[in-house]
Simulated scan of single mutants.
Amino acid sequence: MTARRRWSTEEILDAAAELLRTSDAESFSVRKLAAALGTDSSSLYRHFRSKTELLRAVADRILLAAMDSYRPEGDWKQRIMSLAQRVREAFGQQPQLAAVWGRHASSGTGSRLVMEEILQALRASGLPDEEIPTRYHRIAVLLAALIAAEAGVSAITPEEYEQGMELFRVAVLGADPGRFPALSHFARDVRPLGADRHAAFEEILATQLAHIETAMRSR
């Protein structure tokens, strides 16, 4: 009887990332991954204790990719903006994993590199040390939410997108002026959530950083 192949941790993560390209965290399972590798679930649990631990490890590889060759440049705001764009672009190449990151977070090297750079940038801003953890948390929550939301739009099929756009047009342009006067007034200018995502991402993050700067100046 031929012995089953022993898969390395990196090979398992490669296969998991590939499986997640065509599914999502909800439908993903260790059993499906084991079947794709031609092995049994017990062999994978020698590397990862649970599905959640495995998903965290896959998401962390995206953060590692984002931080590859990264060098901090500019002032503290430019550093955070640059880092945020790198993380956004990295997850944009595999949007299914953005939801994984937003839901399960990560505790690996990639996560630590991102955390370190944001904390270093906030320190460079001149914020008192006691305020930095809270400011960091606000930025981290904002990034995870924006990237996961954008990925959710990116992951839908063209047919689903068109259906959503048609529903949006019906809901907005067909709104009853008597019941929805403001919506009717702005109907032709209101845009769907998926529109102009790049500019919206930058503007929302820049607003948060400007809020920090304003708070510092008012001391």
Score class of each variant (00 low, 15 high):
M1H: 15
R6K: 13
L13S: 05
D14Y: 05
A15S: 12
A17M: 05
L19S: 07
S23P: 09
A25L: 15
V30L: 15
R31T: 15
K32M: 12
K32W: 10
A34S: 14
A35L: 11
A36R: 15
L37A: 04
L37W: 07
T39H: 06
S43H: 11
R46L: 15
F48M: 11
R49Y: 06
T52F: 10
L54W: 03
R56H: 10
R56A: 08
A59H: 07
L64V: 11
P72Y: 01
Q78I: 00
R79C: 08
R79S: 07
R79A: 07
I80L: 02
I80M: 08
M81Q: 14
L83Q: 08
L83P: 01
R86S: 11
V87I: 14
E89Y: 07
Q96W: 00
V100D: 08
W101E: 07
W101Q: 01
A105R: 13
G110A: 07
R112H: 10
E117K: 02
I118D: 06
L119I: 13
Q120F: 05
Q120E: 12
A121T: 11
L122V: 10
G126V: 09
P128K: 14
D129Q: 15
E130G: 00
E131W: 00
R135E: 15
I139Y: 04
A140C: 08
V141H: 05
L142Y: 07
L143I: 09
A144R: 13
A145P: 08
E150I: 00
V153G: 01
S154F: 03
I156D: 05
T157G: 08
T157V: 03
P158I: 09
E160I: 01
G164K: 02
L167Q: 14
L167V: 11
F168G: 04
V170L: 14
G174H: 12
A175K: 01
A175W: 00
R179I: 12
P181M: 01
S184E: 05
A187M: 12
R188K: 12
V190R: 03
V190T: 11
V190F: 05
L193F: 14
G194N: 12
A195V: 08
A195Q: 05
H198N: 09
A199Q: 10
E202P: 00
E203T: 14
L205F: 03
L205R: 01
A206D: 13
L209N: 04
A210P: 00
E213P: 02
M216E: 13
R217V: 13
